[in-house]
Design a protein around this nucleic acid. Structure first.
Lengths: 219, 219, 219, 219
DNA sequence: AATGAATGAGTTTTCATTCAT
DNA sequence: TATGAATGAAAACTCATTCAT
């Protein structure tokens, strides 16, 4: 548990910048470590010590940047949501049809997730086999945005007058769950996943693309 | 320090003398308390003390029934999955068409969730606004069963040759996410939700039932 | 600093009482240790660890009894004040003259202090040579009582109409400061000290008892 | 995390160029902050961070002026004692009678305390209602001086042969305790307080000045 | 079995002090 | 010299689990 790890030389960035740089860098150092550890151990099992141990820094340093485990976790989640929310929103607002609305939503989401795997990766205990998913307020706000956009689209006549709340839930559920599957496949092909989800939402199961011989990954 | 709560008289079933009874009763007492507390605080934040405090029993007693916090947690989750898995499986194996397969899956799931709210309820910290979802091994095994059944249905020619892994993910995602919405609605109508999800999977958005004047749900 | 002390066998009081007894005993164990350590190191320098280390108990046990260093400190001080306040008050209310009021006050106080040295002992850092004195709310309430009693005595014509606030302060100042001197003398003779203070208050310096050849203690 | 307070522009005395000046100025800046914070929080509860936070300077700068928290604390206390001890001593050595000895001691002390309130102010936690008093070595040395002077006065036949140690204690006790009361009165009148204490020591309670209609002080 | 205090390893957190810039 | 982030030893505190009663 306490394997001290031959610590890499502390990052001090002597040459180039100045303190500012080191500071930003160390913050990132801690965030990266946290992402990694959270992904490996899950939120509950992770301790602040685990995080600093995955860092060349000293324990006290953590508290120069974050007040607690909860705070850094939120910071991570919010980073993600803040990065993707505007992109998603823009796509949806530009959509001229149901097709565009749905396909751009899934495509953007899956692409983002593929690029930003470390951040996204649903947390899981390595010790046990449980699966965790946590949505922070920022994420939840993203869900609300989606519902609003659906409502606008209905008002604009773009969508039929469906239950916007359920439709939002369905999109979110499919998006996250399939994203999880993508992460588990050797080739992760966001475009194929987006095609799948889009077809499902536009025409139902019978219009889904035919699958390659495919060997599915395991949970 | 420990808001002591005027504890109800310890359950001793003095009169009946049936030891066995008390035992089963206490086990249930602890399980109920745990379900409640886990639902309120989430797994990580819950302490064994929190659980026994919600019980008329003493802390040591906990360990007469469960080896650890992990064990009781699993016990709860497994109860759920164990109760619903066979029902879902049976429905699907009896399905004679895509329609039946999909509609019975959603209907059974949503009905179960409605009946068994305490157990299902996605965990959320009451303190903050984050949302937690945890899938235990038992649950995950249920996912695998679903995928197998889809694969069998494809082999049997019931389903078109779609990506079974993604389809499973889509079903699971929609099921859990809409279940969450159901729990948030004043009237929770599993039949309506099942109709929605089924229509979506069978014909896509354009075949969804038209919504009532629509009252937006709450985040 | 960490001399672990061959710990005395943990006090479990197997024979006589029951848990209640052990509990009360352990509480006293901790209080005694705290009194000792506070007296030796002073409040500021004392850590909770120091206190439990002076005890055969485990660290967590401290927190079964006291929330923090502050809390146990208050408990100690309050014990003292609670024990002596009623005694002092009774004496003063029974006083039939200035002489009785003053003499009984000092006599009672110095006797108490002599008996209860551990509790009283003004705290001092052994590391440095500073001297600490702390008055808790309970102590301060005792001061207020004294002032009230003086005011009553003035109203009753027992005392001349002096400044009750200053007189109270003078009594308190002399009482504590001389008590400190008593504690530093090889023979501590509360009666002699009381005679000194009483004479001072009743007739001033010129009526003080003549001193023995006197070897003064050191600060 | 650290309520940053819009810091006043760091004192750099840019224009004047006098390094020396800035240096002395910063030292005073830190001392003033420390006096304030110590008075508010007490020694134990005060952190070096608290001190520099009350300053426009940076934490490291503290150590250019003082080696440690202890050192600055001593510096403050010694300032006080160093300022008043010679004055007190001179007065007492010049005393031609018991009256002069006693009256000049109290007068000088109370006047000093009135002028120099910030420094004197007995430390108190603002949070709770406890009262702290700390005597440093320098202060204690002042006590010893007082005792020596009493002994000399006895030897010179000025004083009757009383217990010099107790008399010193009585004077110190009354001086500090009444000083504390002075600080709590709206009008703080050192002369009146000195008159009170002097009368008490010279003739006892019955010779005390008659009190004004009396306004009770505050605890 | 039930009880609930004791345990102590493990975690979180603080803070005086150092040190590169 | 001033700065303020980094350090890490030490303190505070928690909590799952044990165990005498």
């Amino acid at each position: 548990m306490d394997t001290p790890l031959p610590k890499a030389a502390p990052v001090r960035t002597a040459s180039l910048g100045k303190r500012e740089q080191t500071k930003a860098q160390n913050r990132e150092l801690i965030l990266d470590a946290a992402r990694q550890v959270f992904a490996e151990l899950g939120f509950g099992a992770t301790t602040v010590r685990d995080i600093i141990r995955a860092t060349p820094l000293a324990s006290g340093t953590f508290y120069n940047y974050f007040k607690s485990k909860e705070e850094i976790y939120q910071a991570i989640q919010d980073d993600v949501a803040l990065a993707i929310r505007p992109r998603l929103r823009e796509e949806r607002l530009n959509a001229k049809s149901v097709e565009e609305f749905i396909s751009s939503t899934f495509r953007t989401f899956f692409e983002f997730v593929s690029e930003d795997r470390v951040n996204f990766q649903t947390m899981r205990h390595s010790a046990d086999t449980s699966r965790f998913r946590v949505d922070t307020p920022e994420t939840i706000a993203g869900f609300a945005e989606l519902r609003e956009d659906i409502e606008k689209a209905i008002a604009a006549g773009l969508f039929p007058p469906v239950d916007a709340d359920y439709l939002m839930a369905a999109i979110v559920g499919v998006a996250f769950e399939i994203a999880e599957r993508i992460a588990h496949r050797p080739d992760h092909d966001p475009a194929a996943a987006a095609a799948f989800a889009t077809a499902l939402f536009l025409g139902g199961i019978r219009t889904l693309p035919v699958a390659a011989p495919l060997t599915a990954g395991t949970a």
